[in-house]
């Protein structure tokens, strides 16, 4: 166990935000769920008693009928804002006085940094480069993430949970979001920061980052696993073995892809239909909403699927074509 290595990574000035996030995200997740569960209890009481639902104050916050529903922005809101601004300033000042922004040697194209890492908030994308070619990891996936986030309001047909924390009323959307945000995005940043060392190789925490290390991992394409060598196609179409192999791979690769889409679609559908409530919401969705949601979810699942294939089964490409590979 190389504690020094661990400390070196965790204390690198630019990694401080990620270390902070390791605490902040669980904290705020707990904070949100705590309020959600409080609201859920209130909802359960109101659902069971129709009369109470008409009369009871529908918030967990303190309430007195004599109070006004609205208070003056000045001072009640703005004093909080100024207070928070002061706290943030103090925090920033202390942070800036105690920790210096990193500055390396002058830029030198002839000396490659190893590992050469993107800024921490893009490490998820860089980690994705292990699993996908750059055009997917760097261009298609980020686009899907951005567009996928933007369509959320338009595909979420659940009218409940608008403006208050809840868990029970929005189980599906909360799990989906948590999977994408914490399970993929944040986790990949953490992997990219703490696990990936020189040569972007996998170093378990505590293992020394050895720049001389050589990995003998043999990554194979799926067609190689299945022994596709083009002997059939070259025989049938009377072409050379090399040309035959190319076409055999192109044809072969389509099948696992189709299989993935079918399995993922069934999985997504199964998740969407799990509870009676989500079936009810499903009924409210338009065809366009359904297709959009399923498409984005299937593409989201392609990442963990590829991570699994790569890290566990050491498979590089699933579909190899002369123009691009997936």
């Amino acid at each position: 166990m190389d504690w020094h290595q661990l400390w070196e990574i965790a204390s690198a000035p630019d990694n401080v935000p990620i270390v902070a996030m390791l605490f902040l995200i669980p904290f705020y997740l707990w904070y949100a769920l705590k309020q959600g569960i409080e609201n859920d209890k209130l909802i359960a009481i109101l659902e069971s008693d129709a009369n109470l639902a008409k009369t009871k104050y529908r918030k967990t916050q303190e309430w007195d009928p004599k109070w006004e529903r609205e208070v003056h922005t000045w001072p009640y809101l703005m004093r909080m804002e100024f207070l928070v601004a002061i706290i943030v300033t103090v925090l920033l000042m202390v942070w800036s006085l105690t920790l210096n922004a990193p500055l390396e040697e002058p830029a030198n194209p002839n000396v490659t940094m190893n590992p050469a890492k993107a800024p921490w908030y893009f490490l998820g994308l860089q980690e994705m480069l292990v699993y996908f070619d750059p055009w997917i990891a760097g261009v298609v996936m980020p686009t899907l993430v951005i567009v996928g986030l933007m369509v959320i309001p338009y595909i979420d047909a659940n009218p409940l949970g608008n403006g208050y924390y809840t868990y029970k009323q929005r189980r599906f959307s909360i799990w989906t979001f948590m999977f994408g945000f914490v399970g993929l995005w944040v986790l990949m940043i953490v992997i990219g920061t703490f696990i990936r060392g020189p040569g972007w190789m996998w170093f378990w925490p505590g293992r020394t980052w050895d720049a001389e290390r050589v990995d003998y991992a043999v990554n194979r394409n799926l067609d190689q696993v299945f022994g596709i060598d083009g002997s059939w196609t070259s025989a049938i179409f009377h072409v050379t073995k090399d040309q035959g192999a190319i076409w055999a791979r192109v044809v072969f690769g389509i099948f696992p892809l189709i299989a993935f889409f079918i399995v993922a679609a069934i999985l997504v559908h199964w998740i969407c239909m799990r509870t009676e409530f989500s079936r009810k919401i499903y009924q409210r969705m338009s065809l366009l909403q359904l297709v959009t949601m399923y498409t984005f979810l299937i593409f989201m699942f392609s990442l963990p699927a590829k991570i699994l294939l790569r890290l566990v089964f050491t498979i590089h490409y699933v579909w190899v074509t002369p123009w691009f590979s997936i």
Partner: peptide
């Protein structure tokens, strides 16, 4: 510096693709 240079190199290399 090296940090920014290589981070941006890595980042923009994706645009190649």
């Amino acid at each position: 510096d090296q940090l920014g240079f290589w981070a941006v190199t890595v980042g923009t290399n994706m645009a190649r693709a």
